[in-house]
């Protein structure tokens, strides 16, 4: 019981103090999980991250589930996941309530018009970075362009595009992966 509680608290700390999730969380996870609590080894943690990238869902949540399961089974995984999610839920709801009450003020509306433009710019930069990581050959460009066109100009759900891309990926890349 004590360890379940400490799993929850440790992951709440990780969720409550790191911005950005995913890779931004790796250093603090190494400190909290590997060095301080010695729940997993560094290699195990990196392995979890690798699998977290190759499975659907949020990488930080996937990692929390792995560590919790390794320590205390199914119950441990539930406590860890609840821990990493709880700070977000509370903080976001407070901010959302606050914004809702002030949304009608002209100053706030002007600020958000500016913020929207900043968001366009940050996402453009994120897309460029993702491109550099994910696009390695001309087939990748076809996948990317195909997904873009299907998603932007047809009503096909992203869900189907993801399924199609995964299936086509097996056909196009399997030979390379087997070698």
């Amino acid at each position: 019981m004590k360890e379940l509680f400490s799993l929850f608290l440790t992951f709440a700390k990780i969720g409550g103090f790191t911005f950005g999730g995913g890779y931004a969380m790796l250093p603090i996870m190494q400190r909290e999980l590997v060095e301080k609590n010695e729940w997993v080894s560094n290699d195990e943690l990196l392995n979890y991250y690798a699998v977290g990238q190759c499975t659907p869902g949020i990488i930080a949540v996937n990692t929390a589930t792995f560590v919790g399961y390794k320590r205390k089974g199914v119950l441990g995984s539930i406590f860890s996941t609840a821990g990493i999610v709880t700070p977000s839920v509370i903080i976001i709801m407070l901010i959302a309530t606050f914004l809702k009450n002030f949304a009608s003020y002209p100053v706030v509306q002007s600020a958000f018009a500016g913020i929207r433009i900043a968001v366009c710019a940050t996402i453009l930069v994120s897309i460029v970075n993702l491109w550099k990581k994910a696009i390695k050959c001309w087939i990748d460009i076809l996948f990317c362009a195909g997904a873009f066109i299907l998603s932007a100009f047809t009503p096909i759900s992203p869900l189907w595009i993801v399924l199609i891309a995964g299936t086509c990926g097996v056909f196009c890349h399997l030979k390379k992966e087997v070698e």
Partner: peptide
Amino acid sequence: AAFVGLRASVVGLIAAAV
């Protein structure tokens, strides 16, 4: 292999969403 294809297409999906 599936995830090589997925990661490439997700870039296009995000671009379309924006």
